[in-house]
């Protein structure tokens, strides 16, 4: 069963670049000068690759946040980190028009700033008050939305359109230039979380228990949250705020595997990537005249799922 689903997932990843609005001509594929070759290697393959690594980062980050905050609703997204990135991007679009470099930088800065605000606030909350932290995340998101509204009024028509487009998330990239940083960060995150799997497992078991087994609870928590947030910041600055992936995937993996956190790390990473590739495949092939933004698809799935989680999270405890 396990092997079958892995094979199925790999097949999905391999065939994903072959589907899209424009049909590929297989006879032209090997011809470097043809449009099919160009379409396949410069658009489709990079797109699937970035979908995979972004999905992997978002899912693994969700698993880490849910484990450390002990709340299935806590993800970088629900805590407002993605909204921070959006605001950063919007600022760059309005005040540094045209330069993509500033967009990435400000987006990264916005996400990072949000993380620091959350850290400062979470220090004055007790560890048991994760619900309060969620509410802080909601409040931050509202604040960012309001600030975003102000920017809309300051911007012209094309800037507004750019901002709206970013908030929906997009996997549209050309070439592999942007795939490398996202892939690198995702693998770094995977390696680190795997390296700290025993600590995460102890922290998830019980904080007092982890303390008694010689874990520096505060230090390790801080380190893991910071690194995860960095990965999220890189990811969001490239593909925009793609919501709910970090909420859905870890939950499904946990329900299917029924194992402790250390055995969920690789499956969450892998199937998180596959999940976003699949969502993107759907988004690209619904038959609309242009692609439906990926963030819209994941939010359409994620919104109801979020409510489902709220209704069921106390079951069996």
């Amino acid at each position: 069963m396990k092997l079958f689903s892995i094979l199925l997932a790999i097949v999905l990843i391999v065939i994903a670049p072959f589907f899209g609005q424009i049909d590929l001509h297989f006879e032209d594929m090997l011809n470097n000068a043809s449009s099919s070759h160009m379409l396949f290697w410069q658009l489709r393959v990079p797109r699937v690759a970035i979908a995979f690594f972004s999905g992997a980062i978002l899912s693994l980050a969700g698993l880490v946040f849910q484990s450390l905050f002990r709340n299935p609703l806590t993800t970088p997204f629900t805590l407002g980190v993605a909204s921070g990135a959006t605001l950063g991007t919007a600022i760059a679009i309005v005040f540094f028009a045209g330069t993509v470099f500033w967009q990435y930088l400000f987006s990264f800065g916005g996400a990072l700033l949000t993380v620091f605000v959350l850290f400062l606030i979470s220090r004055s909350l007790k560890t048991t008050q994760t619900n309060s932290l969620l509410l802080v995340g909601v409040a931050l998101s509202f604040f960012y939305s309001a600030a975003l509204m102000v920017l809309f009024f300051l911007s012209d028509f094309s800037q507004s359109y750019s901002i709206v487009r970013f908030t929906m998330g997009s996997l549209n990239i050309i070439g592999f230039g942007l795939v490398y940083p996202v892939a690198g960060v995702s693998l770094l995150l995977l390696a680190t979380i795997h390296g700290y799997r025993k600590e995460v497992k102890l922290l998830l078991a019980s904080l007092d228990f982890a303390f008694l087994k010689g874990i520096e609870v505060g230090k390790i928590t801080m380190l893991l949250l910071l690194l995860t947030s960095l990965a999220i910041a890189v990811c969001v600055s490239v593909v925009g705020p793609i919501g709910f992936v970090g909420l859905i995937v870890p939950h499904i993996i946990k329900t299917l595997y029924q194992k402790s956190s250390d055995q969920l790390i690789f499956p969450t990473f892998f199937y998180g990537g596959v999940f976003l590739v699949l969502c993107d495949l759907i988004a690209r092939n619904l038959g609309a005249s242009s692609d439906i933004p990926i963030g819209v698809i994941t939010s359409l799935l994620g919104g109801p799922f979020f409510i489902y989680l709220i209704l069921h999270r106390n079951r069996g405890r």
Binding site: K198, K201, L204, A205, D208, K213, Q258, K259, S260
Partner: peptide, 28 residues
């Protein structure tokens, strides 16, 4: 060092992780 010197066994197990097994717990 502290962990090697002292251990406290509470009255209740109080594990949050719902999928942690007995064997997992002993290993930790």
């Amino acid at each position: 060092q502290r962990a090697q010197y002292i251990n406290f066994i509470p009255a209740k197990l109080g594990i949050y992780d719902e999928y942690l097994t007995v064997w997992d717990y002993l290993n930790l």
